[in-house]
């Protein structure tokens, strides 16, 4: 399985993602934002970080960069595109996934482990994951998911919520919502569910000595689903 990780000026989780993808069997290539051609890929990842210094709105400038034309075409033709954290912010700015990410409700940068409940398994990202709740890491200032009422209706009618913030048992309540996101949303799909945007970082949970293993579970499952 081949993957590509796009590096924007200011990306800082690109190499962590490279390590994670390779650890679980992907042949990964790093792709510079100014390139126009996307290498042949089964999965394209927009990594976390602070592309373009988060100027204007997080992800707004990166969403207009050269390589994104190819990424958008790839996604529209059914290709798997995953945006993590700043990558999620870039995805919403392209319009590939609905909504926007606002400043966290209590204005603080949040860096901690959280639990998320898988809301939908009818997709290649979470199909066959052998658990309902995953422990991932979040580190963001603008992760407060917001969308219009019309978008929310479309999201719920089409079951496009991927994961929701919850407690370790999967209980979804406001107190487990770290950033003020509507409906505790931590990640959403596009309509075809080939594009996933999520705030949590699975690539930070691939080693017990560092953090945890739920990211390993996610990546092992992902490559199996793509085979």
């Amino acid at each position: 399985m081949k993957s590509s990780v796009i590096t924007f000026p200011g990306s800082n989780c690109d190499r962590d993602m490279d390590v994670a993808l390779k650890k679980f069997g992907f042949k990964n290539k790093m792709v510079w934002h100014a390139d126009t051609e996307l290498p042949k890929s089964d999965l394209v990842v927009l990594p976390g970080g602070f592309s373009y210094g988060d100027y204007l709105r997080c992800g707004s400038m990166a969403s207009k960069s050269n390589i994104m034309h190819s990424v958008i075409n790839f996604a529209n033709s059914g290709g798997m595109v995953m945006g993590i954290c700043n990558g999620f912010q870039i995805l919403v700015e392209t319009g590939l996934v609905p909504g926007v990410l606002l400043r966290n409700k209590y204005l603080e940068f949040i860096c901690k482990n959280v639990f998320v409940k898988i809301n939908d398994k009818q997709n290649k990202y979470f199909k066959n994951v052998d658990t309902k709740v995953l422990e991932f890491h979040i580190a963001h200032n603008e992760g407060n998911y917001f969308c219009t009422n019309d978008q929310l209706k479309e999201i719920e009618d089409n079951n496009l919520i991927a994961i929701k913030y919850c407690d370790e048992n999967g209980k979804i309540e406001e107190q487990y919502n770290p950033n003020g996101s509507i409906k505790n949303i931590a990640g959403v799909f596009n309509k075809k569910k080939n594009v996933l945007g999520m705030m949590p970082h699975p690539e930070r949970m691939i080693d017990t000595s560092l953090s945890g293993e739920d990211g390993s579970l996610f990546f092992k499952n992902l490559i199996n689903n793509l085979r």
Binding site: M61, L102, T148
Partner: peptide, 9 residues
């Protein structure tokens, strides 16, 4: 429309 504003918000 294209860059400076995000018309969702």
């Amino acid at each position: 429309k294209k860059l400076l504003a995000n018309l969702v918000i």
